[in-house]
Design a protein around this nucleic acid. Structure first.
Length: 661
RNA sequence: GCACCCGUAGCUCAGCUGGAUAGAGCGGCAGCCUCCGAAGCUGUAGGUCAGAAGUUCGAAUCUUCUCGGGUGCACCA
């Protein structure tokens, strides 16, 4: 609703400026004043115009004042400070529109493809992967159509590098280190299933072990590295026992990853695999296109002689001599690099490759199917390679290769696609020295002094996702058991899960993307203050009021339509109620900003603010004992509005509100 | 060496595309459960926004430099 009024004011001011001064301002700030006494909207526009009009800001503000006061919904306009235009809204009318759920529409045309998680299927997921998946899942929820917004048609995919070196490493671990054959591996996997042992956990240790093994014997080092390479090539080629082992293990680990993520409410629509990108020859098609468009060329001299290269992103082309800084796409031995394959893959995403995967059903979620890429798929099937905009949730350490892929699109003339290519990057998750010590790692004095320590799959150093989720839920369960002994086992478990998952997701999302998270159990397991449970608790309290009052939130909201709210929202007392409405009304504005910035943290912050606002209100105004019927109706509606928007924001963050806490 | 990111209260972080007296949470101190659930609320202390110069009506925010921390820069994926 705030956004709706803001838009109306922007439109009015712009036409006013055009007719009065013949000026066009595209970026017109309408801000939230620092204090409610200044009103609900502040316009610094007079400062902006002062120089261009060669007039004092206050004089300009005075000229605009009266016209602004005529806008429906605006109660008064005051000039403050050196020339701020402060608007006060018609609280009663605005509240009634909010109660009726009038709000700006968020959404648009075009298919959006969000890619996240993308964990190498060779070991268990850890905290770093959780940040990726939670960010991506939350962002997809922000985009998708739901009861609040038309949104955008959105597909969620999880890219699986099932033919990479990391999978090769695990195959080496199983075959060379453990000496297993294909049949042994089959038996091993069956045994793990029957004993309910997590395959990804077993691989976690194997991966650390094989990393040690490569360098363990100086005499054997070269041979072992060669074995690794040979294994990789057999996996890429397919149709042999080694590839079959890779397929069995990587698919098994992938299924584990899906289970882990499903615990957090994270689901996927499609799992494109590297093996199909290879076998369907995406790259060969892309190479032809790149050569035709002139972005890929054969270097004939210099250090890259014999390679096919392209200009590096952000670097001007050299006029004479070889471009020594160029990015190698095809090596002199004719094989393609990772970036080359990634370019092919991204041409597919935008529907520019002229090829598609085969699709097969892989996993059934309660409400939809998750598909996986195959050579020859089932019919009918959905298709994902026709995106208008893409969002790649990938660690900031991949900034350069991502920029290179985007540069390739630009070089091929796909400017519009490059503009709608968002690398949704984020800083890594590390561990605090304290947390590392707690996990049993011995740190050097130098490491102890660091702010954080990087996790390492190769060293087997890190916090596994399932372990963390387990601990979060156990911690929540302890509290729930103490507070609600009267509830049955199943309900307590359900509540503890909602709280544990909510705490974890919120903890991950409250940091903005470019902040390095130094993970610590003590911080993550906190349920007080700026946390998920704090926001959930506010929503639960609001729900309790309706249960005890014997009315529904819906009737409370529709009842305010026939009330005269003017005096009840005025004065200091009224303002403390009105502030809840004002904060609630900013929902669509905040969502819009969070989508534009691709920053779910903005929603997490907002959820906390709204919960805080509600808790303040809850303590100050006693709803159930209110004797004035009209006032009671307003207070109930206030709780209803706060809860409604709280449930919505939390929903976009993938956090559910439990039945009790 | 080059590129990018970061430096804000004791700690962890916000600060919305330059706006009003820089805000939260945690921790500290002092309070609030015969009152809709205290996973809550109230009050209080705590800042040279790393440092310097510049741009302008106005800078934590933009530019340049310095210091400190991080990441990336393979004929790896």
């Amino acid at each position: 609703m705030y956004r709706t009024l803001q838009q109306a004011i922007q439109v009015r001011i712009q036409s006013l400026l055009a007719e009065k001064y013949g000026i066009e301002l595209t970026n017109l700030a309408v801000e939230l004043p620092p204090k409610i006494e200044f009103g609900e909207m502040a316009l610094p526009v007079a400062f902006e115009l002062a120089k261009r009009l060669k007039k004092a800001p206050r004089a300009i503000a005075q000229e605009l004042q009266s016209a602004l006061a005529e806008i429906p919904g605006v109660a008064s306009v005051e000039i403050a400070g050196a020339g701020y235009l402060n608007l006060k809204l018609d609280r009663a009318a605005t509240a009634q529109r909010i109660a009726a759920d009038e709000h700006a529409s968020v959404g648009g045309a075009g298919f959006r493809l969000v890619e996240h998680t993308s964990i190498n299927p060779n070991k268990a997921a850890h905290v770093g992967h959780l940040r990726n998946a939670i960010l991506g899942d939350s962002f997809a929820r922000m985009l998708k159509p739901d009861e609040f917004k038309p949104g955008y048609e959105t597909g969620v995919q999880n890219y699986i590098d099932n033919t990479g070196v990391q999978v090769a490493d695990i195959v080496v671990a199983v075959t060379a280190v453990k000496g297993m054959t294909l049949d042994d591996v089959r038996g091993w996997l069956t045994e793990l299933l029957e004993t309910n042992t997590r395959l990804d956990y077993a691989c976690w240790d194997l991966y650390a072990a094989v990393s040690q093994w490569y360098d363990g014997d100086p005499v054997q080092a070269a041979a072992r590295k060669q074995l690794r390479l040979d294994t990789l090539h057999k996996i890429e080629a397919g149709g042999n026992d080694t590839a079959e082992i890779a397929e069995l293990i990587s698919t098994g680990v992938l299924r584990r990853h899906l289970q882990t993520m499903e615990r957090l409410g994270i689901e996927y629509d499609f799992l494109p695999r590297e093996s199909e990108i290879l076998h369907l020859h995406f790259w060969e098609t892309a190479r032809q296109l790149m050569v035709e468009k002139g972005v890929l060329y054969l270097e004939t001299e210099g250090k890259n002689k014999g390679c096919w290269v392209m200009r590096r992103a952000g670097v001007e082309a050299t006029l004479d001599g070889p471009d020594e800084d160029a990015k190698i796409i095809i090596r002199s031995n004719g094989t393609v690099t990772y970036v080359g394959k990634d370019i092919a893959y991204h041409l597919w995403k935008f529907g520019l490759l002229g090829k598609d995967f085969g699709y097969a059903k892989f996993h059934e979620y309660p409400t939809h199917t998750c598909w996986i890429s195959t050579m020859h798929g089932e019919e009918p099937h959905p298709s994902f390679g026709h995106a208008n905009a893409i969002y790649n949730v990938i660690d900031s350490r991949q900034d350069d290769p991502q920029a290179q892929v985007k540069e390739a699109l630009r070089g091929m003339g796909y400017e519009a696609e490059a503009d709608r290519y968002t690398h949704l990057n984020y800083a890594m998750v590390a561990l605090t020295p304290r947390c590392a010590t707690e996990l049993g790692y011995v740190l050097s004095e130098e490491d102890k002094a660091r702010a954080f320590i990087e996790v390492s799959g190769r060293k087997g150093f890190g916090v596994k996702a399932d372990d963390l989720i387990d601990r979060m839920i156990v911690a929540a369960r302890t509290e729930v058991d103490a507070r609600h002994p009267e509830l049955d086992e199943a309900e307590r478990a359900e509540i503890a899960t909602a709280i544990g998952v909510g705490a974890l997701r919120f903890f991950t999302l409250r940091f903005t993307r470019n902040t390095v998270i130094a993970f610590d159990f003590q911080d993550a397991l906190s349920f007080d203050g700026e946390t998920g449970p704090y926001a959930q608790y506010a929503a639960v309290r609001a729900a309790n009021i309706f249960r005890k009052a014997g009315v529904t939130a819906e009737t409370a909201l529709s009842a305010v339509a026939s009330l005269d709210l003017t005096s009840m929202l005025a004065g200091e007392e009224g303002t403390s109620v009105w502030e809840v409405w004002l904060t609630a009304s900013r929902l669509s504005l905040v969502l819009e900003q969070a989508i534009a910035a691709a920053e779910p943290a903005m929603l997490a912050r907002y959820a906390f603010q709204l919960a805080q606002q509600f808790n303040n209100f809850y303590h100050r105004h006693h709803i159930l004992t209110e004797t004035d019927e009209a006032r009671k109706t307003l207070l109930l509606a206030t709780a209803a509005v706060a809860r409604r928007e709280l449930v919505r924001v939390l929903g976009w963050l993938g956090i559910t509100v439990p039945s009790a806490m």
